[in-house]
Design a binder for these strands. Structure first.
Lengths: 341, 341
DNA sequence: AATAGCGTTGCAAATGTTTTCATCGCGGTT
DNA sequence: AACCGCGATGAAAACATTTGCAACGCTATT
């Protein structure tokens, strides 16, 4: 009842044993006889003892935390990944140390340092673009790390994710196959976002190969924010020289595009086809349902979590892991052949 | 370059000072003279030293972590709260220890214990319903805590949030004011979710007071999942005896309702009005835009973070804080007077 | 000239736990 | 009867850091 916080020696005193025995009950219960174990467990309950992971981790023991660094948890972009990563590692008694950097790679370095200060046992971060400082820090630390979300054949870090270039190609191909030639692009600033850059480059390459590279005025920039994307798309769709289809950097932008088109009285997909990338939760169930290229966020998160857990249980990090999870085209209600309005 | 991890004594050796001085440079730079400070800082960089928060926190010093316990980070329900909470505390050098329990209050107790094992400096959790064990644990720990999201006049824990009953009343009132009398409800199971329960009870009370308590077949249960909600709503709207309006437990369910109604060819809001609660990101920009009662998630998260930070800087916890943030009706495109189809 | 006071630094104790090593008692072997 | 091995437990060192206390070399005061 007192506000004094019991430590291991208090428990030991209460149970009439040594602190070592209490420690053993907690960590190697097999080493201590049943009667004393019961006595100790009773003492733990009676004193309200809660073990101190900080003191534990001072012995080179695990801190039982894993760091997860994402650009943002806003919107549902990374929500599924965070959740599935968490579920995967929580099973193994790990707790998540979560940090965000808002797409600022210098901030990413700082939060990463903080995670190392807390002696996380492993680290997952998003994507392959990072500061040189960040790479150096990771290399110096000897803590398992995995870059989730994106995949690249020559990634310097172990990576588990989708091939964003392919996602872009699939999106472009879909619209081209439907017969579109007047295709506009709405993507986020991609200088520090390898995922967006890979998608955009691939889309442009595919369109150029098909002989319909979009003019500059059809290459718009919008952040990952539905309302702002809506405003950008309104401008894009305002003129009379209008594209017949839009490829959006992700589903959040695509929702903004749908809103803008509807507000302008453009029928979807009759007068305008819209293509997202990501397949975020809800995208299948909006009206009209969004055509998109699915990035398997849940599988990526779960797989990344599992990978770290494996590394930490002496799993085989033979060579650096690079795992590509497939993207998948979902034809839904926002795409159709052009000009059937 | 070696994989040896420098500790404070290595830095001290490199700088030609004692470990105590290094510690002082890090924690009380004012106490050490400029020349030695520079020498030490150079040594820190040279050795790649990263301080060890675990060892630090053993001295009763802060762990610089705050625990945040949410039901889930899936969907965008709590995403804004997590993000704004994080932003608020990151400014003060705190890192987030995130745990989820999937609306299982026994699991909540377990993750809370884990957070205490890590010696978090403060804890935020969602809502006011918790196991008796959880309340006991919190009371015994002498760590500042705040219940975010929901507000209640007699909350045993400090709370910062919205009055969910009022949110329910506002939603019901809006539809009643529009002239609806045939109103159906789609809510999640509310036995362990005080927010949903408060909303549902208030809605039912308001409808009963207006003489149009919904029959049991119009009180549907759906989890917070658009697809599943869609299925539930399809059944609800299938019969010929159809409500003229729907109140949904939150916006995720409402999106499912919109999808179900559209799939059945019901015009919104002509043939069916739909009301959400929450105002999640994107709700304003779907088509049609969702009428909803906004819960100020960002403000709640930021305020909760700020409150903990204040408690930890000797702020004034004079009496237990109970702060109510206002809900707000957003009339948008999914509600209209009945029967104008 | 002796000393008081001050700023800077080092020493060593303390923090809570794990783990190695040693001890102890006990049943079974030779 | 002496001994060996074994299971269970305790004593103490180790982990990386912080901090109270003491000591040191100065300057300024009496």
């Amino acid at each position: 009842m007192t506000s004094y916080r019991a430590d291991i020696t208090a428990v030991a005193r209460a149970a009439g044993v040594s602190p070592a025995t209490v420690s053993r009950v907690l960590n190697h219960p097999g080493l201590v006889s049943a009667p004393t174990r019961n006595r100790v467990e009773a003492a733990i309950r009676a004193t309200g003892y809660i073990r101190n992971r900080a003191a534990q981790s001072m012995h080179g023991r695990r801190s039982a935390t894993l760091g997860l660094v994402v650009p943002t948890v806003d919107y549902s972009i990374f929500a599924e990944l965070v959740q599935s990563f968490n579920d995967a590692v929580a099973e193994h008694e790990f707790t998540l140390l979560l940090a965000t950097h808002g797409y600022d790679l210098a901030a990413e370095y700082r939060v990463l340092r903080k995670l190392y200060e807390h002696r996380v046992d492993g680290i997952a971060l998003i994507g392959l673009d990072h500061d040189a400082d960040t790479f150096r820090l990771i290399a110096s630390q000897d803590v398992p790390v995995v870059a989730a979300w994106a995949w690249a054949a020559e990634s310097p870090l172990p990576c588990i994710g989708a091939d964003n270039a392919e996602a872009g190609r699939v999106a472009a191909r879909h619209l081209l196959d439907l017969g579109h030639r007047r295709i506009a692009l709405v993507f986020p600033p991609s200088d520090k976002n390898d995922r967006a850059r890979a998608r955009l480059d691939a889309v442009q390459a595919a369109l150029a190969a098909a002989g319909c590279a979009p003019p500059a005025r059809w290459c718009a920039r919008a952040p990952y924010d539905t309302s702002q994307a809506k405003a950008v798309c309104r401008d894009l769709l305002a003129g009379r020289d209008r594209p017949s289809a839009l490829i959006c950097g992700n589903d959040v932008i695509a929702q903004g595009a749908i809103a803008a088109a509807t507000a302008q009285g453009l029928a979807i997909p009759g007068a305008l086809s819209i293509m997202g990338i990501g397949d975020f939760p809800g995208s299948a169930d909006t009206v009209p349902a969004l055509s998109t290229v699915a990035i398997p966020a849940r599988r990526i998160g779960a797989r990344a979590g599992r990978h770290l857990v494996e590394c930490l249980s002496g799993g085989p990090p033979a060579g650096i892991l690079r795992e590509r999870l497939p993207v998948e085209l979902h034809r839904r209600g926002t795409t159709a052949p052009p000009g059937i309005a």
